[in-house]
């Protein structure tokens, strides 16, 4: 066991050279690479933290925006609901009014129909009564209805010729209107009795098929008459309790 001091010195130098070589080719590249990688990782972590913070801030902004929109939506919903309720109320009111108008129209139409039906029934009834009366008079008494009506109505008319003359003023032409031609003897009787009641007045006879059976005396603008239609109107008023005699003029 011996020590070669030259070798010792050479080995010290070799060792120092090796330290420098490894520092140059091993330690520095490795440690610098690790440091650079750690810095890059730290930078990425910092960037990730910044991105996370930005994401949190963005999330907070979005949540606030969502809350604001939700509140706005509730306001809009309330407004729309109020508008819808108002529209509904208006439509209901309009519908109720239209239904009321239609109900009134239907009621009026029904009343008009009832009135027309009643009038038609009345007319048919009157015609039936007149026809039956005329047939009964012709079969049983050999009399015409018009002659009997005139015979019954003429005294009533004559009783009120004074009022007629007053209402007619200066008119001097009277017209007697019947539905059918009167028999000659009846016509003469009527003419005679009217001439007695209305002196200085010319008597003229006319027929009107649209007129109800009876007698109508016109003098100027006034008239008197007794017809089956008027008689039935009197009957109707009596039945309705509206008063009036069955022989109303």
């Amino acid at each position: 066991m011996s020590i070669d001091w030259i070798t010792v010195a050479a080995q010290i130098v070799n060792f120092l050279v090796l330290v420098w070589l490894l520092k140059r080719f091993l330690y520095r590249p490795i440690l610098d690479g690790i440091d650079a990688r750690e810095r890059a990782i730290a930078d990425r972590m910092g960037e990730a933290a910044r991105i996370r913070e930005a994401a949190k801030a963005s999330e907070a902004r979005h949540m606030a925006e969502i809350a604001r929109l939700r509140e706005g939506r509730e306001g809009v919903m309330a407004e729309v609901r109020a508008e819808a309720e108002a529209e509904r109320d208006a439509l209901l009111s309009e519908t109720r009014a239209r239904l009321a108008r239609e109900r009134e129209a239907r009621d009026a139409e029904r009343a008009e129909e009832v009135r027309r039906h009643t009038a038609d029934l009345q007319r048919r009834g009157a015609e039936a009564i007149v026809a039956l009366t005329r047939k009964a008079l012709a079969d049983l008494a050999d009399q015409s209805l018009e002659a009997r009506i005139v015979a019954r109505a003429l005294p009533r008319v004559i009783d009120r010729t004074g009022d007629l003359a007053s209402a007619a003023g200066d008119s001097r032409e009277a017209v007697v209107t019947t539905r059918e031609d009167l028999p000659a003897d009846v016509r003469r009787d009527v003419e005679t009795r009217l001439s007695d009641a209305l002196p200085d007045v010319a008597i003229t006879f006319r027929t009107d098929p649209a007129q109800s059976p009876g007698l109508i005396l016109r003098l100027g603008g006034a008239q008197l008459g007794w017809t089956v239609e008027g008689y039935l109107d009197g009957l109707e008023r009596m039945l309705d309790g509206r008063g009036g005699a069955a022989d109303a003029a």
Binding site: S2, I3, D4, W5, T7, V8, Q11, I12, F15
Partner: peptide, 14 residues
């Protein structure tokens, strides 16, 4: 080289 006393002495001196 570490089997040489010169090497180990050199390293120890270092």
């Amino acid at each position: 080289p570490t089997a040489s006393l010169s090497t180990t002495v050199g390293l120890a001196l270092a």
